[in-house]
C-alpha cells in the first residue's frame, strides 16, 4: 500500500492528471472564500477604535505573511524529499513554491509598509517582523537566482534543495536574533500585536481569508507544477499523446 502511494507520486503522468482536479477545486474554493472574507473584512467588520479603517489591511497582510512563511517550510520539506528519495516531482514542487512564496513575501512586505504609513507615520521601520520578512524575501530570491544560474537542471534542483534546507535550519535562528536585536534598539511602543482580543466579527473574516489565501496558493502551486511537469516530460510518450489530443 505504502509502496503504491510512493510509486504514484513518482509518476509525473499520474500527478499531471490528478492535479488538474485539485487545481480546479483549490481555485474555486479560493475565489469563494476570498470574495466572502474580503467583502466581510472591508465593509462589514466593525471599525477598529484605535487604528480606524486602516486596520482593514490586516485581512490581506496577515494571511499573506502566514503563507510566505508556510510556503518556505513546504519548500524545505520538498527539498528534503528530493534529497532523500530523489523524487523528481519534489524538484518541480520546490521550483513552483519558490516563485509563489517569493510573490507572497513581496506582497506581505508591501502591505506591511503601506500599513505602516498610517500606523507608525512612516513606510518603513526596522520592526522585527518586517526585518525577518525582508530576510525571508532575500532567501527566496537566493534560491530562485541559484536555480536560474545553474547550467544543468538536475544539479540546479539539488543545489537549491541544499540551500533551502540550510536556510530552513537558519530561519528560526534569524527570527530569534532579529527579535532580540529589535528589543535592544527600539522602544516597544511600535507593535501591532498588543491589542485587546478581537471580537468574532473581526476574526472570522480573517480566518476565512487565511483559508482563502491557502487555497489560492495551492491553486497557483498546482497550476505552476503542471506546466513545469509538462515541459520536463516533453519527450515522454504520454505527453505527446496528450498534446496531440489538444488540437
Amino acid at each position: 500500500m505504502a509502496w503504491r502511494w510512493f510509486h504514484q507520486w513518482g509518476s509525473p503522468r499520474w500527478f499531471y492528471e490528478r492535479a488538474s482536479r485539485w487545481q480546479a477545486w483549490a481555485g474555486w474554493i479560493a475565489v469563494i472564500l476570498l470574495a466572502v472574507g474580503t467583502v466581510w473584512g472591508l465593509a462589514i467588520a466593525p471599525v477598529d477604535y484605535q487604528q480606524g479603517h486602516s486596520y482593514r489591511i490586516i485581512y490581506l497582510h496577515v494571511p499573506v505573511s502566514f503563507l510566505a512563511q508556510a510556503l518556505y517550510l513546504a519548500m524545505a520539506i520538498a527539498a528534503a524529499v528530493l534529497l532523500v528519495w530523489r523524487m523528481k516531482l519534489a524538484d518541480v514542487a520546490m521550483q513552483s513554491l519558490a516563485i509563489v512564496g517569493f510573490a507572497f513575501c513581496v506582497l506581505a512586505l508591501a502591505s506591511g509598509a503601506i500599513w505602516g504609513k498610517p500606523t507608525w507615520g512612516t513606510y518603513w521601520v526596522w520592526d522585527a517582523r518586517l526585518t525577518s520578512m525582508l530576510i525571508l524575501a532575500f532567501l527566496y530570491l537566493g534560491i530562485i537566482g541559484l536555480r536560474s544560474a545553474m547550467l544543468d537542471p538536475n544539479t540546479a534542483g539539488k543545489a537549491c534543495a541544499i540551500l533551502a534546507l540550510v536556510g530552513a535550519i537558519n530561519l528560526p535562528i534569524i527570527k530569534y536574533s532579529v527579535e532580540w536585536w529589535n528589543t535592544l534598539h527600539q522602544p516597544a511602543s511600535l507593535t501591532l500585536t498588543e491589542k485587546p482580543a478581537m471580537p468574532a466579527s473581526m476574526w472570522v473574516p480573517l480566518l476565512i481569508n487565511i483559508c482563502g489565501y491557502y487555497a489560492a496558493a495551492a491553486y497557483l502551486v498546482f497550476a505552476s507544477m503542471r506546466g513545469l511537469v509538462l515541459h520536463r516530460e516533453r519527450r515522454a510518450q504520454w505527453v505527446r499523446e496528450l498534446v496531440g489530443a489538444h488540437d
Partner: peptide, 26 residues
Amino acid sequence: MAPHGPFVWSVYGLGALVLGGLTWHV
C-alpha cells in the same frame, strides 16, 4: 474609508495585481 482609503485600497489593489499576475503567469 476616511481617512485611510488610499492605503487600504492600494494594498488590496496590489494584492489583486500580484495574485492576478501569478495566475496569468502560470
